[in-house]
Design a protein around this nucleic acid. Structure first.
Length: 783
DNA sequence: GTTCCAACATTTTTT
DNA sequence: ATGTTGGAAC
């Protein structure tokens, strides 16, 4: 973690010296194109940099920072540079450092959350917190909510805590404090949503804790309620830069607007076509209305692409063109060479994995006239993480080294979270959530009963759980084997806590001591399940990670905000990851498998968000294609096993949108000459004929022999039926409908453009009317 | 208090 | 198919 001087960050703005104004060579401007240079030089007034994929936006952004400093306009601590991820923040820091040779003085470069924490620690008392508040992660949050749900006598089965957590998160993303949640949301979570939200916030305050949403929301509240504090920050930070602006949610937007109001010197960089986080509150609208929010804003488009071949750009543009309401950009490149985007259909998912494995090996050895590619140059980008498995299986079989990005993160693993809870207890023994997590981990014979006793004791005296336990032991309120174990646990915490208070204690040694004395290490050593050795390994790694910090406290703070795990192994490997994880990356060779309707675009996205959902999926397709520098291969399978069930698939509607002139359709290899290779590009009638062909093919018979079931009739027309809002009237209560994925069902309810449908096979689901057809329409289509 | 089995869900993910 | 979770049996 980059260390910075607290005082430096909060130092009042000092008039600039003249020395910086002196003429100096400005090499960082030299290798910019005209658009980039315009974005860098426009230092007065609001700027929106619309930067398409691969157009050098990070370069322009960092050059702008350097220019701000170099021209003497701003001192390093006067620039607020916000990103979404730690990775992006790190990259920006690195690049500024490379251009300038130092970043120590840039205390306000970081993620929305890390900057918010810095502000909130200073003004915590304004929102009823102490400045040493703890930051809860999703797990702690859920446990807290569960307690509230139980206390409120709600059936947790029908109203899961996850749902409430999601709801509260959504509200916080929209900057709604409990008091500001609009009446229209009153029905949420069985009519008790707002009430529980309020209780939750109350509990958090009692625990002197915040969740991630609070970090932003509290700062927002402070800014709104205390104009003097806001004015202070406005003066401190007259220059604002924002990366990935298309991903900001309403709370972040308000946060930014308040800070930018005074000086109006804000530069936002983003690409409306790459907004793929709508489902977690990102508002494309923020970028679309930038010019309205900041009148007189300059909009600068970066359109020259330095990454991909013309064919790849054309394919991506063709797909994204189908979206409505874009700001619009036309990517171009000076490059001439390059091959077309390749499209291939496969019989099933396994064949697809096999083929891609072969291709990867082919590229590695050098394929025809193409240059050799290393494994690091190749990536497989999937829509959903469960698609990764097929590739892992295949690559293991053929011994192809691969790396999966986006598995469960290190700090989210069970054993790491347990160990961290022990550390938390050692640092702050009053941390009740940590106490709860590990009192009985390893098993100490302290089950529900004993824990309830501790709770009661603590609550009745207004003490922490640890003190409650101590009190219970003192008055003999607990008996048997549990008592001795609890005594040892309490003593242990006291002992460890005492050590943390010593100056110059060895915190690494302490960590080892905690894990040993608590019996936690022993617990995993005794465990004979196959994953136990791995877990022990992880614990060792955790202790090693401590070396970079001065004490446990600093480490815990870091982990709460960072939560990532960048163990980069050197060996060459193919990368497998989701499309979401791939944003911001690039690879010479990209494979995009699984382009089948229902998988990509995802059925759920369409059912829940209708046309808006399809548009976001389409942006995801755009992100996918534009990751490729030289070779981009899109593929789909006619049959796929989904949750252990064979399903016949239709090529993605996005395949229909690919501009044929830039696509090379590869003949499907193998036995099954069903003609699926071009199905996605054929007219619907032809496609239907081809499907009929496939179902009568020997290949399909063979699949049936292997246990595949005959697919539900999936009318291709269904994919393109778009029923406008009035046409919801085509549906009545009780009418029969047909859905691509779930088959036949009966309409149970109608709300707006959503239908509540009881499907014969899949149970009750809510779907957008545009994505089901009246049953008789489906019956008309022969199969 | 612990272990085992049936029911259940199952896009995407950062902080 | 597979992993998680809650409740019943031990």
């Amino acid at each position: 973690m980059t260390r910075f001087d607290e005082n430096d960050a909060f130092e009042a703005a000092v008039p600039l010296s003249r020395r910086a104004m002196a003429a100096r060579p400005q090499p960082y401007l030299d290798d910019l194109n005209p658009a980039q240079r315009a974005a860098v030089m426009a230092l007065d007034g609001p700027v929106l940099m619309l930067a398409g994929a691969g157009t050098g936006k990070t370069k322009a952004l960092t050059a702008r920072i350097v220019h701000l400093l170099d021209s003497g306009k701003a001192r390093p601590n006067q620039i607020l540079a916000v990103t979404f991820t730690n990775k992006a923040a790190r990259e920006m820091k690195d690049r500024v450092a490379r251009m300038l040779g130092q970043v120590e003085g840039m205390p306000w470069m970081g993620t929305f959350h890390s900057i918010s924490v810095k502000i909130l620690r200073r003004h915590a008392e304004l929102v009823g917190l102490k400045s040493n508040f703890t930051i809860l992660d999703t797990d702690d949050q859920l446990r807290l909510l569960k307690q509230l749900i139980v206390a409120a006598n709600i059936d947790e089965k029908r109203w899961p805590a996850r749902m409430l957590a999601g709801l509260i998160d959504n509200w916080k993303n929209r900057a709604w404090t409990p008091a500001k949640v609009p009446a229209s949301e009153a029905g949420a979570y069985n009519n008790r949503g707002t009430e529980l939200y309020e209780q939750y916030q109350h509990r958090l305050r009692e625990l002197n804790a915040t969740d991630f949403g609070d970090l932003l929301l509290h700062v927002l509240t402070i800014f709104q309620a205390h104009p003097d504090v806001l004015a202070q920050y406005q003066n401190w930070l007259p220059y604002i830069l924002v990366d990935e602006y298309q991903d900001t949610n309403v709370a972040q937007y308000m946060w930014l607007r308040l800070l930018a109001q005074a000086h109006r010197n804000i530069c936002c960089v983003g690409d409306d076509d790459q907004s793929i986080y709508g489902w977690r509150g990102a508002e494309v609208g923020n970028i679309l209305r930038f010019e309205k929010d900041f009148p007189g804003a300059q909009v600068i488009r970066l359109e020259q692409n330095y990454r991909s071949t013309p064919h790849i750009l054309a394919a991506a543009s063709g797909v994204i063109a189908a979206n409505a309401g874009r700001l619009g950009k036309t990517l171009w490149t000076e490059r001439q060479e390059g091959e077309k985007v390749r499209l291939i259909g496969h019989w099933d998912g396994e064949e697809e994995a096999r083929w891609i494995g072969d291709e990867v090996e082919g590229f590695q050895r050098g394929r025809g006239d193409l240059r050799l590619f290393g494994l690091d140059d190749m990536a497989i980008l999937v829509r959903a993480s469960h698609q990764m498995r097929a590739f892992e299986d295949r690559f293991l079989t053929i011994g192809l080294p691969y790396r999966v990005i986006g598995g469960p993160r290190f700090y989210e693993r069970l054993e790491i979270r347990d160990a961290m809870a022990y550390f938390r207890l050692a640092v702050s023994p009053e941390d009740d959530l940590a106490f709860e997590r590990v009192v009985n981990q390893p098993k100490r014979g302290l089950g529900d009963k004993a824990q309830q006793e501790i709770q009661r004791e603590a609550r009745s005296h207004g003490l922490s759980l640890l003190e409650g336990a101590r009190g219970l032991l003192a008055r003999g309120g607990i008996g048997g084997k549990g008592a001795g174990q609890l005594r040892a646990f309490v003593d242990g915490i006291d002992r460890w806590h005492a050590i943390t208070l010593q100056r110059d204690h060895d915190h690494i040694r302490l960590a080892e001591q905690i894990l040993d004395e608590s019996g936690y290490t022993a617990m995993w050593q005794a465990d004979k399940t196959p994953e136990a050795p791995g877990r022990l390994e992880n614990l060792k790694e955790l202790v090693k990670a401590l070396e970079q910090f001065e004490n446990l406290q600093g480490f815990l703070e870091h982990v709460a905000l960072i939560m990532d795990n960048e163990t980069e192994e050197a060996a060459e490997k193919v990368t497998i990851m989701t499309l979401h994880a791939a944003k911001g990356l690039e690879f010479p060779v990209v494979f995009l498998p699984g382009w089948e309707d229902g998988l990509f675009p995802s059925q759920r996205s369409m059912d829940e968000s209708g046309q808006r959902g399809v548009e976001e999926e389409r942006r995801l397709a755009y992100v996918g294609i534009t990751r490729a520098e030289q070779v981009c291969t899109i593929s789909f399978a006619a049959n796929r096993r989904v949750y252990g069930q064979w399903q016949s698939q239709l090529p993605s509607r996005f395949i229909d949108e690919l501009p044929a002139a830039h696509v090379e359709v590869l003949t499907p290899p193998g036995l099954y000459g069903g003609g699926y290779g071009a199905a996605g590009m054929a007219s619907s009638l032809e496609a239907k004929a081809m499907r009929a062909d496939v179902y009568s093919s020997p290949g399909w018979k063979r699949m049936q022999d292997r246990g595949a079931s005959r697919p539900v009739s999936q009318p291709r027309e269904g994919r393109h039926v778009t029923i406008d809002l009035q046409a919801v009237s085509a549906f009545t209560l009780g009418c029969r409908v047909f859905h691509q994925k779930f088959g036949y069902g009966t309409v149970q309810g109608i709300e707006g453009d959503k239908l509540d449908v009881a499907f014969d096979k899949a149970g009750a689901k809510k779907v957008v009317a545009g994505f089901v057809v009246p049953a008789q329409q489906a019956d008309d289509i022969p199969f």
